[in-house]
Amino acid sequence: MSLVRVENVKKSFGKNTVLDGVSFTIEKGEVKVIIGPSGTGKSTLLRCINMLAPPDSGKIWLQDIELTNPKTNLHQMRQKIGMVFQHFALFKHLKAIDNVALGLVKVKGMNRSDAYKKAMNDLQKVGLAEHADKYPAQLSGGQQQRVGIARALAMDPLLMLFDEPTSALDPELIGEVLQVMQNLAKEGMTMVCVTHEMGFAKSVASEIIFMEKGHILEASAPQQMFSNPQNERTRSFLHKIAELYGETL
């Protein structure tokens, strides 16, 4: 059974159709990288997967639970889906360690000392143990994003969603975040990443999905996608990113 199944998902905001019938599956341990022009619905797709933006129609399954079923307990299911935000979205009034521990205490109902032990462990994983007592405003963008990753990881999710996790970062800070993501991928975490970091995609993606105007236009392994894109639109988009990010594909 696939870890995630997305079936013909449609989503509109008013008259603006953002997702127009999107289907794909994610196997356990896979890393999917989603690329595509701005406004194509990439973020919306991620937000559909954890039901922050429930689809208008179509179905989404996590393992054998249908998330789009109104009877599903979303609070329970969202614990299994970690989300990392473009602008970090750390809880600004809480220290790094509190950011990570909050979900463990309030959602998982762990006692405080266990929760903080685990939170410290997760901060260590992203290389931030010595910054545990700092507030978000005292951390660099790269450090904040790593706290964001630790916060999501703390819940022991089955799946991690990344929405352009490095696009708000200064170039010299991107590497440290990608490194953490790469390690995660190697450890076998199932991931869906919206990112235009093609180096990252090349090294860890099992599949690259090219989206345009609410459709999946093409999906294939990185090698295939970079050497021989089937669709003319994919080809020209890849060229554009290559120019923009100075990557040689």
Binding site: R47, N50, L52, H75, Q76, M77, R78, Q79, I81, G82, M83, F85, H87, A89, L90, F91, K92, L102, G103, K106, V107, R151, A152, M155
Partner: peptide
């Protein structure tokens, strides 16, 4: 609105 989304995404009500 991101703070609300971040909270919900952890499974908080």
């Amino acid at each position: 609105s991101e703070q609300m989304e971040a909270g919900l995404s952890l499974g908080m009500s």
